[in-house]
Amino acid sequence: MAGGRIADQVGRVLGGRYRLVAPIGTGGSAHVYVADDTTLRRRVAVKVLQPALALDQAFLKRFRAESQAAAALNHPNIMRVFDWGEDAEGPFLVMEFLEGGSLRDMLDSGRRLTVSQAVLVGLEAARALDYAHRRGLVHRDIKPANICFDDEGRSAIADFGLARALAEAAWTEPDGVLLGTARYAAPEAAQGRNVDGKADVYALGWVLLEAVTGDAPPVADTTVATLMARANQPIVAPFGV
């Protein structure tokens, strides 16, 4: 979906219910809109995935299963999943709308968390991950863009279940997007081994370090080189940490 077409989607109604109001984010695999739920009369966030994914039956099967699993999660620090569907523009996911933006937005604006703020965000995220892990769900893509805030500062982890579905899709994200995810990957994930909740905890540690220092985990020139380095070379934390 080209940049001009993102804005052109405003006003469309998905699933006969969700009217797209304004774009609020874009990535390699999806575009995110604030939308009106015309049935329950509330604001929601709608993530519209790439149209190519609508042709991938294996992805759609996993997407449905993971969406249902994510919707069953009920924790104050996990972004709620309300609904999912399929549209001519691609599969879509309907989620809780958090007005405060993401940790990525904050870092990109030049702001950082204080140590005390990072402790609070870390505790909230750790409790959310523990809750999900005890129910057999691993996130697999913890990064600043997936930690969001409401207007009172409560943090919530977004995109539970989506990373696993995308990992099994025939369509792949652009390398630049994958590189942004690979920088937080645990060594076992970089080696292609099965991952469990420890990989999420590893990624959360890097996210909190970046949130306080402003220094993102190092990357190489390509996603493959980054993953190889993560799997085989020790990482040195920023000086003074």
Rank of each mutant, 00 (worst) to 15 (best):
V138H: 06
G27H: 04
A22L: 07
L98N: 09
N77M: 07
V94M: 08
L166I: 11
G153I: 08
W206N: 04
D108G: 02
T38S: 09
D37S: 03
A118W: 06
F92E: 05
G197S: 10
L129M: 14
W84M: 13
N77C: 06
R183T: 03
A185G: 05
D56Y: 04
C148P: 00
E173V: 10
A58M: 02
E89T: 04
E96T: 09
A163Q: 06
I235R: 09
A185E: 05
R19N: 03
E86N: 14
D196M: 12
A186T: 11
Y33G: 01
R19V: 01
D159E: 11
P23A: 13
A69L: 15
K198M: 11
R154H: 15
A145G: 13
T181L: 00
L98D: 08
R135Q: 12
T26S: 15
R64V: 15
A237V: 10
G205D: 07
S155L: 12
G16N: 11
K198W: 10
P217Y: 13
G214I: 01
A128S: 13
A211S: 13
Q68G: 08
G3P: 03
A126M: 13
L227Q: 06
V94K: 11
P76E: 13
D36A: 14
R104K: 09
P187S: 14
D130L: 08
P217V: 05
H31G: 02
P234G: 09
E188Y: 07
V32C: 13
G25F: 00
F92V: 11
P174K: 03
A170N: 00
A132W: 06
L14G: 01
N194R: 15
R230T: 15
V177G: 08
